[in-house]
Design a protein around this nucleic acid. Structure first.
Lengths: 232, 232
DNA sequence: CTTTCCATTATTGTCGACAATAAATAGCTT
DNA sequence: AAGCTATTTATTGTCGACAATAATGGAAAG
């Protein structure tokens, strides 16, 4: 259970040794969960005071926030929290489909059998958690991302891992969290995960690729609906 | 001719307003062209002195260099120029194939006819340059990257554009430059570009995708050979 | 002679202050 | 009164110095 939290917050366990790291995690969470409103301007002096650090490490943190597309910076003008939009969602998921499809093909080839079995166990564990805590969206969120992380890590491609886990996934989470994802898709998602993992276990990269693309596409449509509801 | 240089060095014309920007471009070039040796350690005080700036903007530049995978940083330990390797090349081109394939599909859908025609003209222009300056690898380099840039921009997906043009292409250039790419592939590459663009013009995304993947795959094999020669 | 521990040195991370640029406000002109 | 311009204000970019951490070299023990 606490493992799930850890996994979601930091896919690749890097001990936050520097103060910029520490603050980065906090701001990331605040932005993703909407604590700092989407579209709002970011004041460096204000944030620095808030976290009791100087502007130097804060700017380092902001640079990394820009890297994962959570803020947008304009030279000599400042930074703003990104604004969620329909177009943004589409663009983001176009890439996800492609890259996570690739991750599946690679995982089918390179993911050690041991890791696959371990992930299988994790899926069952998530399922039981899900049964117990029906409707708690955070568990779905955590479990889903956890699954995707593992598959991506299984690709053994460092660039791919970096792009998806470090650069794209915080924004994905932001869409899901702020759209309040839960609903009836939960159990279906579990089945889809199972099917994908089975294909990977059978070393059938093509099928795993196809299933993952469908899975992500379905997830996108789910968020699209929420976004449309919210905008009207 | 000078346009070609500009295009290669800065795909999306952002006037380097801050001193960090200015220095970034210089270090990028130095790393890509091997002026700063691959695998060598980077000294912040030394570089700061060399460019007559303080460490603050230099560190900003280093952060962005890390972002495009030209250097690797370890907290409290420092930064090293990335080392080229067979595995790295494979991993990099796996992603390129996927993302540029996607870019082609999207370009076939969203690239304005006007832009396509303009790119067609650019291809012819490159061809004539090529005929005149037979064997000058830099022109091939510039022309090839220019073509890829245009197609990527045609996708109209900001995340895709950012990933390919800002994060991946400097490393691609580094492989190509340091492996000394020229040789007999030049004229074939022009034909492949033509074919891809024709498919995009016909709004045939599937075909453009396929052709681009083959084109990139062929380019990879070309570099693989050089790399193998160099390592033996 | 090798290995381990410690001190020294150098490098990175952080801080507070200053300079340059952009935003906000007030005053002037039409 | 509206719009433009100049001045003020605030924010970002940059600097030099200090603190904390890692790399280096040497001395002592085995």
């Amino acid at each position: 259970m606490s493992t799930i939290h850890m996994e979601v917050l930091s896919p690749i366990a890097k001990p936050a040794v520097t103060s910029a790291d520490r603050v980065l995690v906090q701001i990331q969470r605040a932005v993703v969960e909407g604590e700092i409103a989407a579209g709002s301007k970011i004041s460096e002096p204000e944030l620095a005071r808030k976290f009791n650090i100087s502007r130097a490490p804060l700017r380092e943190a902001l640079a990394r926030l820009e890297r994962c597309h959570l803020i947008e910076r304009i030279p000599n003008a400042g930074a703003r929290v990104v604004r969620l939009s329909y177009e943004g969602l589409i663009h983001l998921y176009q890439i996800r489909e492609e890259l996570e499809g690739l991750a599946c093909r690679l995982a089918a080839e390179y993911m050690p059998t041991e890791e696959i079995e371990q992930l299988q166990g994790l899926l069952d564990q998530h399922l039981s958690h899900q049964r117990v805590r029906e409707g708690e969206s955070y568990y779905q969120e955590a479990g889903d991302l956890d699954f995707h992380y593992r598959v991506i890590l299984g690709s053994k491609n460092p660039y791919l891992i970096n792009m998806l886990c470090d650069e794209l996934y915080y924004l994905v989470r932001m869409y899901r969290v702020q759209m309040g994802m839960n609903g009836p898709r939960v159990s279906r998602a579990f089945d889809e995960h199972k099917a994908i993992l089975t294909a990977i276990g059978n070393r059938d990269g093509e099928l795993a690729d196809l299933l993952m693309r469908r899975h992500i596409s379905a997830s996108r449509k789910n968020i699209e609906i929420k976004l449309a509801q919210q905008e009207k």
